[in-house]
Nucleic acid binder design. Structure first.
Length: 640
RNA sequence: GCCGGUAUAGCGUAGUGGUAGCGCAGCGGUUUUGUAAACCGCUGGUCGGGGGUUCGAAUCCCUCUGCCGGCUCCA
């Protein structure tokens, strides 16, 4: 039993001792996770080789990772709940990036009120400092061990089928089938705090029974738990829903409907800045901008296939009476969930020659999708949103260049918003697909070529493409290291066929053009939410809703402030005056809270000297300068 | 859709069966102010909607709606 106590050596190449001693900051979480992942991968390899040896050998020289402590805490949580409640069926309890969870099936409805006593029981079990003992067993032994645990027995059947060794861990009187690895003895787990309880379908399938999932976090001690909770508080301050209210950027109002965003003036200013940049760049890149209707007749959606493939995601039909008297009939309309059919109509406005191609139509097109209950989330998942959508129609000869240009365009656009870490994903032909295999081959190759030539690293998802064509998805990482999928470039072999798209080639015959859908920012609403969190509400100068706030010291300088404001506005800067009856300290505080990049203090001394005292949101007092000097400074900053 | 939680003034919150309170914001006044909060006063709530229990409900029960977390991390 004491074998596990050998586990003190720290000689592994990826030893993490030391690293774990410092509570992480947000910025170093990605690297920690990455390190852990590598280490964990190493462990798995290491363990696989050791598979048929017994416990002391297997875990000797192992270091204690967060992963092991979390996973072990999950076991003790299960044990504690089994000690405290009757008829508990346990399922699984893995470590997660943040902590761990465990899924249970029991009659008692777990609630946060139960947490203190469960935590006390866990703490007791931790303090017992019992060893975690690993043992490979036969299927028969495992069945005996797991008797009465129906989920575990089902999982056991899977393991048996996989041919993998059946590994078990025992701690005190509690045993379960588990791949491990675990800490050597329970005191190494440290402090455990339960965070929340939520429902979770068995095996993640909504057809199965819903289990109760308890989430928890683990710290070396209470201080580490407290530090984690503090970080959670910090993250909450960055939440775009919180900042959206504090900074008066947007509102989602139940009076109107769930998932329908309103851009308040300050949010709208940011959006206008985004859109102006977006339009300028699209014209530069050879796109034409179009505006298309928000609703269309049902036959459009029948032709496009949306009504057969996507009806659940669409708002229900609108029945409209057309015609009069005896000729009256009911026409079905649908609000659009996508822009493509309309862009196709624009393409079909005239007969196309190969000389016209490529045709690139772009639109900030607002679409509505019926997102089911329980999935809406701030601006990230809404029912009405604006796609930065475009469709490219071109000849087979043009396609490679078009894809390259699009990828290049996406990189530049995302870079402008501070996203330089872009990961691409290439999804290839699925088993069931429409379109000529040769076209798939060429299309996929053009996507590959574009990624290679742009020097972008990418992962390939074999068979992961849509039935209508291969695609590239682009994910960025925000300031907290969280990945977000934004851009997408998708071939479509389906719609040109369905809508019978053609162009006349040099041979005088009709041909079917290639069609590519692409979005760079995805949904403008969602993108805005991401930007808010990325910048923690402190937008860079070019995006800030209020770029400059002028702070007159007393109302004697109000006229001076107004002169400054009109000069700034004449230069296109978004400048406001704080005319309130407050002292300078309070005006500065307010401007800081509103995250205004520049404050211009205008007092009697400044007016007399014809200068402004500049204060930067980030760097504080920059001293007095002329308005020309300040304008030159901001112009340089906006030029970057 | 399902599981759990939650809903008190514009915002953040206190209030576990007996007259709904505080802070910020807002409004009025005093002060004319120099780099992150001057002072005094005032307004504002059918306690999310509906139903029930009770002499009496913000509080207990049912129901609807919104919001929050989860239902992807896999023995």
């Amino acid at each position: 039993m004491c074998a596990a106590r050998f586990l003190t050596a720290r000689s592994l190449p990826f030893s993490r001792s030391g690293n774990n001693d410092t509570p992480g900051t947000f910025s170093d979480i990605p690297s920690r996770i990455c390190l852990e992942a590598k280490y964990f991968a190493f462990l798995l390899v290491f363990r696989r080789k050791q598979r048929y040896h017994i416990d002391p050998l297997r875990r000797i020289e192992m270091d204690i990772t967060d992963e092991m402590r979390r996973h072990s805490a999950a076991h003790l949580t299960a044990r504690a709940i089994m000690n405290l409640f009757d008829n508990v069926q346990v399922d699984i309890g893995p470590a997660t990036d943040e902590g761990f969870y465990y899924d249970f099936d029991l009659e008692h409805r777990l609630s946060p009120e139960d947490f203190p006593k469960i935590e006390a029981e866990i703490a007791r079990l931790v303090a017992l400092d019992e060893p975690f003992v690993q043992k490979d067993v036969t299927a028969e032994e495992a069945k005996k061990m797991l008797a009465g645990q129906k989920y575990k027995l089902e999982r056991l059947a899977d393991v048996e089928a996989s041919g993998e060794a059946i590994s078990t861990y025992t701690v005190g009187d509690y045993a379960e089938m588990c791949r491990g690895p675990h800490v050597a003895h329970s005191a190494q787990i440290g402090a455990v705090k339960l965070m929340k309880v939520a429902g979770s379908y068995y095996r993640g399938d909504e057809k199965n029974k819903m289990l109760q999932r308890v989430y928890g976090i683990v710290g070396k001690d209470q201080a580490e738990i407290d530090a984690y909770l503090e970080r959670m508080e910090e993250a909450k301050k960055r939440d775009h829903r919180v900042l959206g209210r504090q900074l008066a950027l947007f509102t989602i109002n139940d009076q109107v409907g769930p998932g329908l965003a309103h851009w308040l003036p300050r949010g709208a200013r940011v959006r206008v800045a985004i859109e102006e940049y977006w339009r300028k760049k699209h014209y530069e890149a050879g796109y034409e901008i179009v505006y298309t209707p928000h609703v269309g007749k049902s036959n459009l959606w029948e032709t496009s296939g949306h009504l057969s493939f996507y009806k659940e995601g669409m708002f229900p039909v609108m029945k409209v009476q057309e015609g009069d008297g005896a000729d009256a009939y009911i026409q079905d309309y649908y609000v659009k969930p996508m822009n493509c059919p309309f862009h196709i109509q624009c393409y079909q406005f005239e007969k196309r020659s190969y000389r016209d191609l490529p045709v690139r139509y772009a639109e900030l097109g607002t679409v509505y999708r019926y997102e089911k209950d329980g999935v809406r989330h701030g601006l990230f998942r809404v029912r009405g949103f604006t796609q930065d959508d475009a469709h490219i129609f071109c000849t087979p000869e043009q396609i490679v260049q078009e894809i390259k240009d699009t990828v290049e365009f996406a990189k530049k656009m995302l870079g402008k918003f501070g996203f330089h870490d872009i990961q691409a994903y290439l999804s290839t032909k699925p088993a069931k697909a429409v379109g000529d295999p040769a076209r798939w081959e060429q299309a996929t190759q053009s996507l590959r070529d574009a990624l290679d030539q742009e020097g972008m690293t990418y992962e390939v998802d074999e068979g992961g493409g849509a039935f209508y064509g291969p695609k590239i998805d682009m994910k960025i990482k925000d300031a907290l290291g969280r990945p977000w999928q934004l851009g997408t470039v998708q071939f479509d072999f389906n719609l040109p066929e369905r809508f019978n798209l053609t162009y006349v080639g040099a041979d005088g015959k009709e041909h079917q053009p290639y069609m590519v859908h692409r979005a760079l920012l995805g949904s403008i609403e969602r993108f805005f939410g991401i930007l808010i969190e990325h910048y923690a509400g402190a937008f860079p100068l070019w995006l800030a809703p209020e770029q400059v706030r002028i702070l007159p010291i007393t109302d004697k300088q109000l006229d001076y402030a107004k002169r400054i404001q009109s000069e700034l506005r004449a230069k296109g800067l978004r400048a406001e005056i704080d005319p309130s009856n407050e002292k300078l300290g309070a005006k500065i505080r307010n401007a800081q809270l509103w995250k205004v990049p520049y404050m211009l203090v205008a007092g009697g001394r400044d007016e007399a000297a014809g200068v402004v005292s500049v204060r930067s949101r980030a760097d504080g007092d920059l001293g007095a300068m002329t308005l020309e000097a300040f304008l030159a400074k901001t112009a340089a900053e906006l030029d970057q």
